[in-house]
């Protein structure tokens, strides 16, 4: 991969990766570092990036996995927080702060804290793709290189445990 290609790829696909990292990590500095690291890994494995169509799902999986590991190291397990329900405003200065406290992200963080207590790495990824990224089972299967049947089985198990946790 040439230098020029790397620069253009970074600027073209970086926002998607950064957005994902910000959503999972809820910290602009960590999200910035994570985005950088994801692309460094992409460059190391550039042989796998044969066309742009393949970039996004691949980067999405690498970014999610990387962020989940960061969260595990950070000790996010078991920490359930409440949303501050602060609305979006026009002031760009505290944009990151507002994004980090948005109800969607608080919900995502709470889901992650549960995932770490119950599931292995593959199941965590599937759960994040399903419940945070809103992917269909076909998209998850394509992104992770799994069969749709495997994804379906994992999701059914996750759903069962989630219902147990909810006391139903």
């Amino acid at each position: 991969m040439e230098l020029n290609e790397i620069t253009l790829l970074y600027r073209r696909l970086g926002p998607s990766v950064y957005r994902r990292c910000l959503r999972l990590l809820s910290d602009p500095e960590e999200a910035r570092d994570a985005t950088q690291e994801v692309f460094v890994r992409a460059i190391r494995h550039c042989g796998k990036l044969t066309d742009e169509k393949a970039y996004l799902p691949w980067l999405c999986r690498v970014a999610t996995n990387y962020c989940l590991n960061r969260l595990q190291h950070r000790g996010v397990v078991g920490k359930v927080v409440q949303s501050t329900e602060r609305p979006y405003g026009n002031n760009q200065n505290d944009f990151h702060e507002r994004v980090a406290d948005s109800p969607d992200l608080v919900e995502a963080r709470n889901l992650l804290s549960i995932l770490f207590t119950k599931y292995d790495e593959r199941a965590r990824l599937i759960a994040v793709h399903k419940y945070i990224d809103g992917m269909t089972q076909d998209e998850i299967a394509g992104t992770m290189g799994l069969s749709r049947r495997t994804v379906g089985k994992e999701l059914a198990e996750i759903h069962r445990v989630a219902l147990e946790l909810a006391g139903r």
Binding site: M1, L3, I6, T7, Y10, R11, G14, P15, Y18, R19, R32, T35, Q36, F39, V40, I43, R44
Partner: peptide, 17 residues
């Protein structure tokens, strides 16, 4: 990303190359 993240990180990203 374009105004704050890329300017401070793309050097290191491409530096990998």
């Amino acid at each position: 990303f374009m105004t704050e993240v890329a300017p401070s990180t793309e050097g290191l990203v491409a530096g990998e190359l």
